[in-house]
Design a protein around this nucleic acid. Structure first.
Lengths: 251, 251
DNA sequence: ATAATACGTGCATAAAAACGCATTGTCAAG
DNA sequence: CTTGACAATGCGTTTTTATGCACGTATTAT
């Protein structure tokens, strides 16, 4: 049985049954558990499955609610969120970008925080509904179903009319030379407007976002004032960012 | 059963039932109570649930009250929603008011409906995210935490710039003489703007909303073209509305 | 006030994963 | 045919993770 065959088999059974167990696969495929583990590791690296202790699950539990989807890679996101919250202070006006990492940050904000939060993300607005001291401005526009944020001319224009102290930016791809980039043009415009309307800009990036690039450029790294990433990242990978004057924080 | 599966299960039952008991989960998931406790602890650490003695609750009281409201009189709301969906046709531009009843309607819309939906409700925008043929416009403004909708000048102004075929209006209080009324001034302005921007106006009102009044008047009943209510309502209670030329539908 | 239930912690155990290393098989160049 | 490079696989060892149990403490209920 070839490796590719096994991969195929793993993916199909995963889609059929919702989960696979490493031990089960080893007997079914007549290989050692080591091999299965290696297979699963490769598939997880390619973002095709979600690796968990004992086996693997579907990466995006077929169209479950956003709040559940957010459960993935909780560990890393939680740590980043905890670090990000430390940058927030009473009385600030803060722009919150969409995305699951920024949503985590929103949920970790202290319940008694006094602030104005401006966001184009419906889940973030809803998550903040029980913070009685936070004034929430939800920015309107065309609703982008994938990431549950608004985009388009109106979103960008409305953002221009604010002047925030801080901006929590969810980052898709970050590269020392190419700068920030995202997979859709609409989102690029929105993020650009967020950056322009904010004094400080905090980028939240999991380790796998570093040194990658996407089709649409948002802007150069100089735009960032802070970068928060995981503790696992080897420090030498971060020096290019520090050299640009960005305050790099490892959660 | 993998740990992540249990976590998923806990989250979904929590969303469905509003609470979970540790002891119940232990038997349901076939693990010791210790394990359940550990699971709950982890989920609470990630701010996904609110841990309490004996089990766990949804984290955000606002969302709790919202889901509570959503769970009230499901029967009636479902029937009203089914009736409301029949008024919707391909190609229309439809304004959706906030509220749990209108949210039900949104969820009952056929998955292949082609339409443009304009709403100030974050949950409705999110609920429609899996309707690929619907263009969603989310209206921005100050976010009103109680009902998870936007209100304020910007919301009203933006509504003015649209001309819709249909408006699905969630109704708080309805009275033959006093007209439509709501418990907050901001919402009154918004509903007024929605009515003004729409050709047809459909009011969705459970039986207990009929012949009641609230502090802030939205407008006279003449503004309505349709009224959908429950089947239980005695027909004689509805004649005042019919006499005003409103098309009354009993679900 | 007292019983019953739930909680947290430390510990033991078993399962799973990670790691290094040896073996095997394949392919291509010599 | 041989040989060396290389990927794939399996094995043994160590490390990590998950889970249940025991026990003392806290919380709730009666």
């Amino acid at each position: 049985m070839l490796k590719e065959e096994r991969h195929q088999h793993i993916l199909t059974t995963l889609h059929q049954e919702g989960k696979v167990l490493a031990s089960e696969l080893a007997t079914r495929l007549n290989v050692s558990e080591d091999t299965v583990r290696r297979d699963l590791h490769e598939l997880a690296d390619a973002h095709l499955i979600q690796r968990v202790h004992g086996g693997a699950l579907l990466r995006s539990p077929a169209l479950v609610s956003y709040t559940d989807r957010q459960q993935q890679a909780v560990q890393a996101k939680t740590e980043i969120a905890r670090a990000a919250v430390k940058l927030v202070h009473n009385g600030q006006v803060i722009i919150f970008d969409g995305g699951t990492t920024t949503l985590q940050v929103a949920q970790f904000l202290p319940l008694d925080l006094q602030a104005t939060i401006i966001t184009n993300s419906a889940p973030i607005a809803m998550a903040l509904a029980n913070h009685s001291q936070i004034e929430i401005i939800l920015i309107g526009g065309k609703f982008y179903k994938n990431s549950l944020v608004t985009v388009g001319v109106e979103t960008v224009e409305t953002l221009r009319s604010f002047r925030a102290d801080l901006c929590m930016l969810g980052v898709c791809s970050l590269h020392p030379d190419l700068g920030l980039s995202v997979p859709s043009l609409d989102e690029a415009y929105v993020k650009r407007a967020m950056i322009a309307s904010s004094a400080d800009v905090v980028a939240l990036a999991a380790a796998d976002k570093l040194n990658t690039a996407a089709p649409y450029i948002v802007g150069p790294l100089r735009d960032l004032t802070h970068l928060i990433t995981e503790a696992i990242v080897p420090p030498e990978n971060l020096t290019p960012y520090q050299d640009l004057g960005i305050m790099v924080i490892q959660a």
